[in-house]
């Protein structure tokens, strides 16, 4: 498996604050790569440097074997980029915008036409012809994906694509990302861990500009086997009795937790 993206010893500071501190990792082809970290951990900075929008202080980034240099955007022909809150020209219609993007990347007219129709269908915007200015956030996000995939990039970089959305919108976006993974490697930054578990097969955890953890989900789960387990009983079970039985057999639980209905599940049930 070849690496679509490699990052070597990357460093970046804004003023005195070091945001990225000797970061090294690589993303193999065909994966959905979860890039996890708290807000301000340096995820966006790393992505913007990969796109040549920010200058790195030191270190090297290569995309499909080509080195990224700041200000030049040659490597961007391999990349599709989706922002957390993508902004478009509000006075344009979705098809006009995709057409502009297609002409900028140098696709043939016939290709732009077929790709835009295909992608607008994929993201559920087919037949929507109103101006982008009146779009909801979810719709903008979906148009963002269509725009990012237009030139059939080898690498799709998504910066917190779900964090500005409601649960329904999040689910839709994750579903679309899952669908494109056969054709494109996806890097997906987020601070929402449950999103990562839903679709990623590899992760890297970023903390204070350094790599805290990385590997495939299976590897990590195997390596960091939990010391314990959780047993869940249904609502009718008498808690005291269960604890009593455990105590009789000299089994001492470290903690007891009452399982609550998750609000997310409730929300989904009510909405859908």
């Amino acid at each position: 498996m070849t690496d679509v993206l490699t990052i070597q010893n990357l460093t970046k500071s804004f003023g005195k604050e070091t945001v990225i501190d000797g970061l090294t990792f690589s993303v193999p082809e065909g994966s959905i790569f979860g890039f996890i970290g708290k807000n301000g951990a340096g995820k966006t900075t790393t992505m913007k440097m990969t796109l040549g929008l920010l200058a790195a202080d030191s270190g090297e980034i290569t995309v499909c074997g080509e080195r990224v240099s700041f200000g030049q955007t040659a490597t961007n022909r391999h990349i599709g980029y989706l922002l957390d809150v993508p902004e478009f020209y509000g006075y344009m219609r979705p098809k006009e915008y995709l057409w502009l993007c297609g002409e900028i990347t140098g696709l043939e007219n016939a290709k732009i036409k077929s790709r835009s129709e295909e992608l607008l269908k994929l993201v559920g915007l087919a037949g929507i012809n109103k101006k982008i200015g009146s779009f909801s956030r979810g719709m903008k996000q979906r148009l963002g994906i269509a725009q990012a995939l237009l030139n059939e990039p080898k690498l799709l970089i998504c910066d917190e694509p779900t964090s500005a959305l409601d649960p329904v919108g999040r689910k839709e976006i994750l579903e679309i990302l899952r669908q494109v993974k056969d054709k494109t490697t996806v890097i997906f930054s987020t601070h929402i861990i449950s999103d990562v578990e839903r679709i990623c097969d590899r992760i890297a955890v970023l903390d204070k500009g350094r790599l805290a953890l990385s590997g495939t989900i299976a590897e990590l789960k195997a390596k960091h086997k939990s010391g314990g387990f959780t047993a869940t009983f249904d609502a009718g079970t008498d808690k005291e009795r269960v604890l009593g039985v455990l105590a009789e057999n000299h089994l001492q639980p470290i903690g007891v937790e009452e399982t609550e209905q998750t609000i997310e599940n409730l929300f989904m049930e009510v909405i859908l």
């Binding site: 955007t73 922002l83 993508p86 502009l100 993007c101 990347t105 725009q147």
Partner: peptide, 11 residues
């Protein structure tokens, strides 16, 4: 922030 999209498209 409208430039980010078009610049990352290779403009």
């Amino acid at each position: 922030g409208t430039l980010v999209n078009v610049l990352t498209k290779g403009l």
